[in-house]
Amino acid sequence: MSIIDKLMVKPWIADQGALEEQNGFAQPAKKIALWIFLAVVSVLFSLFISAYFMRMELADWRPLADPGLLWINTALLIVSSVALQWARVSADRGQFSGLKFGLLIAGAATLAFLAGQYVAWQQLIALGYFASSNPANAFYYLLTGLHGLHLLGGLVVWGMTTNKLMGGSQVDEVRVTVELCAIYWHFLLLVWLILFGLLLAT
């Protein structure tokens, strides 16, 4: 029954309003929450990017340099995303070692990505691209910073999950969380690719 059909039901008529086996989606509540949260974050970044385009039109916009380091950082983030996918698949198959290594690699790569982003900031500041000197710079720090914050939030969940696993939990107990982490990382990778593309293109 599609959502439109559901909304067309006349609930006062017995057979139309009849009981169903299943209310809601056949997915864990956590996963639904994650999807909604991703929608919220998408709106957030879309609005930032709209603001970016509107501000870019004005006369004082001076694009900033693209540090070569960002290519390495991008690679690191891809690695972390792939590693989490590996962990997710391993968890689905009940393979403890794959799950463990996937998680560890993902965490390490993410930390390296964040460190790399920080170094890129330092490089830009050393080159004289201060936040206050041009809106292009300000947007760069703001958007990368915000993206990094979201990754940090993800790392908290990653840390708890890894800790749980190392403390002797069964694969099944962390399966859903690992899946959610993987989805979240893929999403943040996508956001990063869009931001990076935006930076290169403007």
Binding site: K6, L7, V9, K10, P11, G17, L19, E20, N23, G24, F25, A29, I32, A33, I36, F37, V40
Partner: peptide, 24 residues
């Protein structure tokens, strides 16, 4: 609010008791 809001939405979507269809 976002923490609370995710709760309200997911609760309405997922935690309705048996027979509580959307239009009820």
């Amino acid at each position: 609010f976002t923490m609370g809001g995710l709760n309200y939405v997911v609760t309405v979507l997922q935690a309705r008791t048996r027979g509580m269809t959307l239009m009820r």
